[in-house]
Design a binder for these strands. Structure first.
Length: 332
DNA sequence: AATGTAGTCAACCGCGAGGTT
DNA sequence: CAACCTCGCGGTTGACTACAT
């Protein structure tokens, strides 16, 4: 990407991570848990700086990550929290379990900003654009008045604004008040939203035995599937595939998981004979096998034809580390 | 079919906070 | 208390893809 390296060390790799690198990092953290990031690349045998490893893990490889687009509720929460917290993405992310600051930031810049503008709301101030234009110099400390929109010349905009703000108003008012009082914004927001607090800097280090892994009840999701937001996912329609292996019981325990499923020919490893691991050794072994090189994977698709898919490392790592892949059952 | 443009998102950089020496 | 180190955050970049012309 044409920039000078973030660290002085020469010979460190930059750019997209390969599946092999992912594998090394995963294996290392599975074995040792998270520790001093500076030491990680050396110990894991990676030619990366610690910063890069941390970023890759926290934004992509972490087992508790959700993938895919933000839901409507999540989006509302982001708008809500942004109105109060501004561009404090990590704070915002801490209220959306499984979402990273980077992901939210990207989503904000690419989706939400536009949506708000389309609705006539300034994404920075969260006020109607029309009224902002009519203000010579909008006051900087307007957060506490968000629940009470300013005079608007356009009733239409006002309506849209009110509609949007009504979602937020009680929370924001309360939060803003609280923040002014004692600065404990996040605490109050959590109370207001009644969500589980999840702040990455408060999460304890993950020990290997605490990492959730799929068990034999589940089959590895396909290279790309309907639950993935990846642009490559359109190749498959898994809706008619065998879904019986998805345990109803687990559905009850984990109702929010958007389960992926597909049918695989498990007669050879080229066809994803994966996900049926008896123990973690087998899992690691499969993981190594899966991301060791480039495979051609034949997957049955809806119309009874077969599509041969060449999977490169990045694609594979995405699939492997897709949300559903991890969050099933704890290995004992 | 070729080219241009816009959108998306993983990854990078610089900086500041907080801890340690 | 200063210097140093490590980590995390927010802004930005650029590769890749999808869509338009």
């Amino acid at each position: 990407m044409g920039r000078k390296p973030c660290c002085d060390k020469v010979g460190l790799k930059q750019g997209p991570w390969t599946a092999d690198e992912d594998n090394k990092l995963i294996n290392f953290i599975l074995t040792n848990g998270q520790c001093c990031w500076r030491a990680v690349p050396k110990l894991a045998g990676l030619l990366r700086c610690g910063k890069s490893c941390r970023l890759r893990w926290t934004n992509y490889l972490r087992p508790d990550l959700k993938r895919g687009l933000l839901s409507e509720n999540e989006e509302k929460m982001v708008i809500d929290l942004h109105a109060q917290l501004g561009n404090r993405w990590s704070k915002i992310a801490s209220h959306l379990p499984g979402r990273t600051d980077n992901e939210i930031k990207n989503h904000w810049n690419t989706h939400i900003k536009k949506k708000l503008k389309k609705m006539g709301i300034d994404p920075v101030t969260h006020k109607p654009l029309a009224s902002i234009e009519n203000q010579a110099s909008p006051p900087a400390t307007e957060k506490t008045t968000i629940s009470e929109p300013m005079d608007c010349q356009s009733n239409e905009i006002n309506e849209v604004f009110n509609e949007t703000i009504s979602i937020q108003s009680s929370t924001i008012t309360e939060v803003a008040k609280d923040e002014q009082e004692d600065g404990e914004d996040s605490k109050r927001i959590v109370e207001a939203h009644q969500v589980v607090d999840f702040c990455t800097d408060e999460v304890p280090l993950i020990e290997p035995h605490e990492i959730l892994l799929p068990t034999k009840s589940y089959i590895l999701p396909p290279l790309s599937s309907s639950c993935s937001s990846s642009p490559t996912s359109s190749n498959y329609d898994i809706s008619t595939s065998n879904q019986s292996f998805v345990h109803e019981e687990i559905h009850q325990h984990l109702p929010n998981i958007d389960w992926c499923s597909t049918s695989f020919d498990s007669t050879n490893y080229n066809n994803f004979d994966a996900g049926l691991w008896e123990n973690d050794d087998e899992f690691i072994s499969n993981l190594n096998m899966l991301i060791n090189d480039q495979y051609e994977t034949e997957i049955s698709v809806q119309n009874d034809t077969s599509t041969t898919v060449a999977t490169d490392f990045n694609q594979y790592s995405r699939m492997l580390l897709n949300d559903d892949f991890w969050k099933f059952e704890q290995l004992l």
